[in-house]
């Protein structure tokens, strides 16, 4: 059984090498070298992902797509109008209601969005082709239109990882657009979203939009207010519970996106 010691030797050598590289990676020593491979593979990933998105998009009804785009545009106008009305009511010209200004937006291509069943399962994270070299930082919000897509949680020189709002570890303070009820939006994984921790005395309405309340610090870190998280589709209110909750539908199809925008501070 001469082969067995040889196999063990091979295993030990590469296992120890792997552990050593893992330890170096955790300490950040390998950070300068990581971008070298990422600059090579990012275009390949982007091509594969775009090709896959194109193939899965074949046969989708263009009329329905047009209607969805018009719906998004009208929702944006509704949001803008609502903000104008509130601003006028409060007579507060100095308070800026922040829809992300266009000069703060950095367009980014999605190069990776691994999901269980490609094209059907909603991914929980994106990998985008912008990183530290482009000014992206951990904690930056990622948007499409007025919709919050997720938050950057890891950056390298040329790539970044984005945790989607539907990720089971995601949560955001939020409010309803019509009734101003406050709550916390939590990702459920698999594309699910709920609005939780809403006091029973607040009104929730099916069809109402949920927007971020905003938790930006003085340094500009965090999520700005007014970004759409989803729309209420069902309400769960039990008088014996402390809080009521609502099930939300995201207004964005996360498995079909290929381009997003990073809000640069």
């Amino acid at each position: 059984m001469k082969q067995r010691p040889e196999v063990t030797a091979y295993f030990l050598i590469f296992f120890i090498l792997s552990v050593a590289i893992f330890a170096l990676s955790k300490t950040g020593v390998l950070s300068p070298f990581e971008p070298i491979f990422q600059t090579i593979i990012a275009p390949v990933q982007s091509t594969v992902y775009n090709g896959f998105s194109f193939v899965t998009g074949i046969g989708s009804n263009s009329k329905i797509k047009d209607l969805e785009n018009k719906n998004d545009l009208l929702t944006k106008k509704l949001l803008d109008q609502d903000k104008l009305i509130k601003d006028n009511k409060a007579l507060n010209d100095q308070f800026l209601t922040q829809n992300p200004p266009s000069d703060n937006l950095l367009p980014a291509q999605i190069v990776g969005a691994p999901g269980f069943v490609p094209g059907l399962s909603v991914p929980e994270d994106y990998i985008i082709d912008k990183g530290l070299a482009d000014g992206v930082k951990v904690g930056d919000a990622v948007v499409v239109g007025d919709n919050l897509i997720g938050i950057v949680y890891k950056t390298t020189k040329y790539l970044s990882s984005v945790s989607l709002v539907t990720n089971s570890s995601a949560s955001f303070t939020a409010k309803t657009m019509e009734t101003n009820a406050l709550g916390v939006v939590k990702g459920q994984g698999g594309g699910g979203l709920i609005l939780d921790n809403v006091v029973l005395s607040d009104n929730l309405k099916v069809g109402d939009l949920i927007v971020t309340k905003g938790d930006a610090s003085v340094l500009g870190e965090g999520v700005m207010p007014g970004l759409i998280l989803g729309e209420i589709v069902a309400i769960s209110k039990n008088p014996s519970d402390l809080f009521q909750r609502a099930k939300l539908n995201a207004r964005v199809n996360f498995s079909k996106l290929y381009k997003v925008f990073v809000v640069i501070r």
Partner: peptide, 26 residues
Amino acid sequence: LLLDLAMLKPVGFSSIIFEIYIFLIF
């Protein structure tokens, strides 16, 4: 290593799993 680099995970983590897996099969 390449998988970890592409997925922005700590480099070496997947290699450790793969090495143990292959060794057990052998």
